[in-house]
Design a protein around this nucleic acid. Structure first.
Lengths: 191, 191
DNA sequence: TTTCAAATATGATCGCCGTCATGTTTTTGT
DNA sequence: ACAAAAACATGACGGCGATCATATTTGAAA
């Protein structure tokens, strides 16, 4: 049952999208190849026509999910607020792949770790542009530090069962970051 | 082959210690029950005399690993420096259980999530005491925010393959936190 | 000391999952 | 239009791992 080039490319995209959502929602190890294929509307047989192995799928999925759209004039405050919202916490399947997958990737192949490193670099660069600061070094320092806080807070908030504690972690981190971001608010010149 | 009450208690401790190190090093799902028992110097058979299931072991291991020693007069700067050191990054098996396991626990049983929540509360309280600030609310906000940054930075640094990027994440976060911690340095009154 | 059950060892079971083998259909290059 | 193979479906295989069954030893209570 052969299919069009175009259809095949679409199938590949569907597999990557399904894997991306499932991996974020349940973790890589908890998701089977057959489950991914089924979510993509296919059966497990065709999988090895698209990818060499499950590990290969993980690496390709990371590269696929971590593409960061260049954000001119990103509103950092709004970004942080949305990132640390209960809505984002409760929507891991559609949320930030870094927060959902970074911890696991430590145990994966070099290809996956390289893919995630690329995504990290883009993300840091993007945040550095948006971060207020006197010079480039200060901006980058603030970008990395607050990015780490965002990732950490989301991971911690998701780990916990107690909604009150989970909410507090999100809110305190957001309030703390808001104060830091406001440190040199309104800087519009780049350097 | 029965053993002493005392020996049995020691065996249980060995199992928990082995599980704690192995889980942190390789992740919960990548470690088999037999592997844990072997590391504890036993065989897989006796496992279910100590724990009801692997999930139960995970929950008990978290409670065992997350006991936080009360730290009077904690040197926050030194703590952050050690936490974000390459040495700690490269020693997951002996390092912070939260950074090693929190992300995974999201996919585990309520018992495990409750155990980790208890550990979080203790850790936040401990950091709140040590954090400088005008009032209790500011201290707690700073504690949660910087704790999230520490966890996040360690997780991100461990995920990455590129040593330069990994080092930078640790260093930038540490420098950033150092500046925040210094904001109201030398506060010794509590309220 | 004698008995009973506890603690662990050995071995088996059962299901899941990654991967491969093979069959079927149909696009694509000629 | 024809042939070749690409793309996917169905089905099978093999290993691993959680859990259980049973045997064995021996502490512990009487």
């Amino acid at each position: 049952m052969r299919v069009t080039r175009e259809k095949m490319a679409e199938n590949r995209r569907r597999i990557l999208d399904a894997a991306s959502a499932l991996f974020r929602a349940k973790g890589v190890e908890a998701v089977s190849v057959a489950e991914v294929m089924k979510a993509a509307g296919l059966t497990h047989g065709g999988f090895y026509g698209h990818f060499a192995s499950k590990d290969d799928l993980v690496a390709k999925t990371l590269a696929h999910a971590l593409v960061v759209e260049a954000a001119e004039g990103l509103d950092l405050r709004a970004y942080v607020s949305a990132y640390l919202s209960p809505r984002h916490r409760d929507n891991a399947a559609g949320g930030c792949p870094t927060a959902g997958l970074a911890a696991e990737i430590r145990h994966h192949t070099p290809a996956s770790r390289a893919a995630i490193a690329d995504g990290f670099r883009s993300q840091i660069d993007r945040l550095t542009e948006a971060f207020p600061g006197a010079d480039g070094a200060a901006k980058r320092r603030g970008a990395v530090g607050s990015w780490a806080a965002m990732i950490g807070a989301l991971i911690l908030a998701r780990a916990v069962d107690d909604p009150a504690l989970s909410d507090e972690i999100l809110q305190q981190t957001q309030a703390w970051l808001d104060a830091r971001i406001g440190d040199t608010a309104g800087s519009t010149d780049a350097s």
